[in-house]
Design a protein around this nucleic acid. Sequence first.
RNA 1: CGGGGCGUGGCGCAGCCUGGUAGCGCACCUGAAUGGGGUUCAGGAGGCCGAGCGUUCGAAUCGCUCCGCCCCGACCA
Length: 567
Amino acid sequence: MRLSRLFFTTLRDDPADAEMASHRLLLRAGYVRQLGAGIYSLLPLGFRVNQRVEQVIREEMDRIGCQEMEMPVVHPADLWRESGRYYKIGSEMVRFKDRADRDMVLAMTHEEVVASLLRDIVRSYRQLPMMVYHFQTKFRDEPRSRGGLIRVREFVMKDAYSCDRDEAGLDRSYQLQYEAYTRIFERLGLDTVVVGADVGIMGGSGAHEFMFLNEFGEDTLVICDACDYAANQQIAVVGKPEVAAEAPKPMEEIATPGATTIATLARFLEVGPERTAKAAFFMTGDGRFIVAIVRGDFDVNETKLVNEVKAVGGLRPATVEEIKARGMEAGYGSPIGARDATVVVDELVTRSPNLVAGANRDGYHLLNVNVGRDYTPDLVAEIANAREGDPCPQCGKPVTLRKGIEVGNIFKLGTDFTIPMGATFLGEDGIAHPIVMGSYGIGLGRNVACIVEAHHDAKGIIWPAEVAPYPAHLVTVGANKDPHVVEVAERLYEAALAAGPRHEILYDDRDESPGVKFTDAELLGMPRILTVSPRSLAAGGVEETDRATGERKVRPIAEVEASLVGG
RNA sequence: CGGGGCGUGGCGCAGCCUGGUAGCGCACCUGAAUGGGGUUCAGGAGGCCGAGCGUUCGAAUCGCUCCGCCCCGACCA
């Protein structure tokens, strides 16, 4: 591609809205443009990178026998009513009516379509196992997009679905996908950490997320450097402190004016936060009021809480009015005297005697509160967040907390879609069984952004060869002075072009100053920068710069040409 | 959805407080010089100042409403 013809422009100034290096560089180098909140166009360069990423994924999916297909973006709402997700998912799913007043939705993912196809096509166990995938646009009307391509509303995802006769088959398919993912991210140049993940209220029996460690990540990971333990904080269960036994003391009310947070309370009473109980109040999507109690030195983990109380529709913080209506006082709250509330207590609290807890009276707390004696939990569970330095559940060494971006996930769905949607097969036993599914997603744009996060320097992007839009960037200098420069450059360019699409290079044939050309070449990030100039010709050929190492050498023209057309 | 910030040419910004009909840098066009690190000079083109309503003789500037975008939080099968 001749740069003089390429639909793009580079920017000298950093776009004001781009905080992440990847976002800034992709905008500045002319790979993407924003159309709206979380909605991006891929310019030709960006599209080419996307295609390269897609191709890597395609090869690895094909390699494990996953079959490529394509499913629609617009679905009849009835399909989603069948699985029940039409009612469970909130406003992140775009709903609309077609001209005949039929309810339609924009696809957020494609489990329903796969299940409906299975129902139509699969009759016998002989047709299983089977895996399919496609690259397709998803629209998720996220409340807030962020980080350029990291969190968007419209994006292309590779989503694969495994379909098996039973759990053992699912385990095999899952393992194949796991291994394929490992190869994919290695080829993409992304170091990932695989963490155990939340399966959510939709059920399923297991999930892993492939995480790219990055400070802008939206997930917090609990990682042990001493062993291989790694989990999303949403589900991480780590060791809790030992608590010294203590005889229960009489409960006693004490004035604590203004001490509405654990920090101020602990300071006021001159005790450690571990001597206090923290109350958090939630409403479930189905209208239940939850009081969650953790020790003052911990935070409530909402994912764990959602799962423990099986909160359909999730949790939202309760309002002050809702708290008052149940006999409690925000800022001075505890389950003592609570009405119409489900009390969920972290197991550590039950082992911690004589805690300070709210008196449910403005400006007062209670000393020496003991679970069981002073109030009765409806549920005792592990609902606290793992903290930096807590003991690893596998080896006991302190864990660290890291931020990560989810670049891929694999999920054992089980029969959550096939049972409600009636996707069954006739087994060897002559009985109908539900097909056992798994789903496996990789968001393309997010991966492109992460690749840039991992591969750039102060000057620009440095694409790994596997995903570079073009293998080389050819620059001419002094072309106006010396016709031989143009001759050689044209010869190299045409030779690469003739060698096939995979060999095509980027050719900066613009009448720009050398500074502009070199600066753009480094910004754009092709792995090899080839310079043809009177100087390089006099030195024996073409100057080649390795973008990653900065290493330069002059090579004979014929040798460079061979490298462009060869394997 | 709550809190904060910002909408002025493709990008980055000034002007707004103290109303008087829009400016700078980069990019773009023309010409000349230059030709190995965003080169120089000269001359240009491009903006109903996010939208609507209001105040005023007069609004980019003041007021109200709306829309959009960014950040923090909530949210993220």
